[in-house]
Amino acid sequence: MSSPSECLAQILAEGRFHAIRSLGEECAAELHTHAKERYLALEATIPRLRRSMSRRIFELGPPVLAIYQALHHDLGVDREPALRLAEEMLHAFHRKQLHRSALDGIAMDMMFRLRPARNLLMRSLFAEEPDGFRFEQADDAGALMAFDVRACPLVSFARRHNAPEIVAMICRLDDLKPSARRGVELRRTGTLGTGAERCDFRYVAAKK
């Protein structure tokens, strides 16, 4: 598991092509500097989550916010182009992570196919953590796994820094992960990050 600061360095590196294409060489270099400065200013406000799973889910929030703040406030990029470029950089990083994490994908494939492994994961989700993610089991007989997220520290963190608009791009990464898994689809109607009252995760067997 990477730290948020390591994620920032990786997103800046993997997203450099997109930054140069949109901003030019000089401004892309300035983005690198300003994003690191913004991250250092945010670091003290990062919640100290105890559970490794919570930290892993949260880890992209601070670097994405730092990049967005650097684009929007330091470089003067308008809101929508700043969000679009930040998401392009995030996707470049995410694609590289999926490529590097082939073994993780195999492990997740096995977990979805084995009921004891699914049950173990579900139990770990529901462990209590103040100010962390709050999961609730959902009833859906047709799903391999079904749960809702009722509280999200990513949303709280972004709102605290007056940038709730960044969370949606992190939510959208979830839609990319199951596509790499054989035979499993994620069905979801909304997320807290996009203004819904819950994130409804339903992992189902894919139709052949």
Rank of each mutant, 00 (worst) to 15 (best):
L121D: 04
F157D: 02
L40Y: 02
V64R: 06
A9W: 00
A196W: 01
A107K: 14
P47V: 01
A13G: 06
V64I: 08
I106V: 14
D148V: 08
F112T: 00
S124Y: 03
R187V: 10
F157I: 09
R188N: 12
E37H: 03
M145L: 15
R50L: 00
G76S: 13
A205T: 02
M122N: 03
R159T: 12
E59A: 06
L144D: 04
A19T: 04
S179K: 15
A141P: 06
E197V: 05
A41N: 04
T33Q: 05
L8Q: 08
V167I: 12
S22W: 03
L176Y: 10
S3T: 15
A29K: 04
D74S: 15
H73L: 15
I20E: 09
H34F: 11
G132L: 03
K36M: 02
Y68A: 10
H73Q: 13
N162K: 15
A86N: 08
R48I: 01
S5H: 10
D174Y: 02
T194W: 05
P47M: 00
T189P: 14
F147S: 03
A143L: 10
P130D: 00
E37M: 04
A196V: 13
A158L: 09
S156V: 14
T45S: 13
C199E: 00
A141Y: 04
E25C: 03
A102L: 14
L121H: 05
T45A: 09
R48C: 07
L176N: 11
D174R: 02
R100A: 14
E128C: 00
H73M: 11
V64W: 03
L186S: 08
R50G: 00
D74K: 13
M111I: 05
F17N: 05
K207G: 11
A206S: 15
L103D: 11
K207E: 15
A117I: 07
R95L: 08
K177A: 11
L154M: 11
M110P: 00
S5T: 07
R16K: 14
L154D: 07
A141S: 14
I20K: 02
K177N: 12
D139P: 06
A29N: 09
S124F: 08
D200F: 06
A82D: 07
M53N: 10
L176A: 11
H73F: 13
D104L: 12
H18Q: 13
E30G: 05
R56G: 07
D131C: 08
L65E: 10
K96G: 12
I170R: 03
T194D: 14
A158G: 10
S5W: 09
A19M: 04
E136Q: 13
A66C: 07
